[in-house]
Design a protein around this nucleic acid. Structure first.
Lengths: 159, 159
DNA sequence: TTGTGTGCAAAAGCTTTGCATGTTG
DNA sequence: CAACATGCAAAGCTTTTGCACACAA
């Protein structure tokens, strides 16, 4: 087992523990489906939609329904283990949230590529605007759209 | 006619002229529906969805179809006269874009209130990240989410 | 045992499309 | 008058819901 694979296994154990605490404290049931979906998400590295997750689990012959996928995604978003995005399309996109520093996205409208970046100025803006507008700012979403200059092959499913 | 009303009428004339040029240069037809929808949008001050625009036009006994509303919205977005947003919900929201300085949004997840703000640091981030990631950044979307501290009545249609 | 969670399918909500008709250029 | 835009309704897609059954506590 490579070092990074081992790191992933460790993270999966950690998030399962966090998830367990959340389920316990909210008096929710620990079903195998919930843990399997959580694990499935943490083995992915992309920004997927609910259907892709469902299809992938079905392809592995795991018996799960769309309803459970959607319910569990919402549950995971509510305990901050998963982040939900709207990259300008109707379909919501998700990604794992634990063990990854907060980041934003830059999206190629031509080929659909999604890269991540980090900028401390966002935090400053959140603090300042929260104070100015009298808001308790809890989270944010910053997406930059444009065209990338390398390896850009147009996709039908553009953004 | 008040001064601000007069200013609005002037803006409406301006955007119609811009729209006309766009239609001409793209060899598209100048239909009354297109102009009426444009005017309707510029008389609004909110962040509306396609259905609300359609309903409002119907309520004024204007004969228009959803298809035309959606088609025209897309057309107006493509010529930068209208901006399209996804405020964390599935339904797309729109607002007029001409004559208003570029701004971002702060959204109350409790009552649905949407306020606008401006911060020059966003432009800096766009420039820096575009260069760093080798992207031609054309536009962006920054939404801050949280709860507002005044006049906050929970809405069923939350964000 | 008790009630929450699940699977399945149907329904709901937003958006797009096909087709016949109308209208712009 | 020829092509394109429109209205209407139906279809498409993503997401939610209702109901009977399963299973965690």
């Amino acid at each position: 087992m490579s070092q990074s694979t081992e790191a992933l296994e460790n993270i999966i154990e950690e998030v399962k523990t966090i998830f367990s605490s959340h389920l316990e404290s909210h008096k929710l049931r620990k079903t195998p489906e919930r843990y399997t979906i959580l694990e499935e998400i943490y083995r992915r590295t992309d920004h997927f939609d609910a259907e892709a997750l469902y299809i992938h689990m079905k392809a592995q012959n795991y018996r799960v329904s769309r309803a459970t996928v959607y319910n569990t995604l919402e549950l995971l978003v509510s305990c901050d283990l998963v982040t939900k995005h709207q990259f300008g399309k109707n379909t919501a996109r998700y990604e794992k949230a634990y063990g990854y520093r907060q980041h934003d996205h830059i999206i190629c409208v031509n080929c659909g590529k999604v890269l991540e970046f980090c900028d401390p100025r966002i935090q400053q803006i959140k603090n300042m605007m929260g104070e100015l507008m009298e808001f308790n700012v809890t989270h944010h979403s910053l997406n930059l759209y444009g065209t990338c200059k390398s390896d850009c092959k147009p996709k039908s499913d553009e953004y």
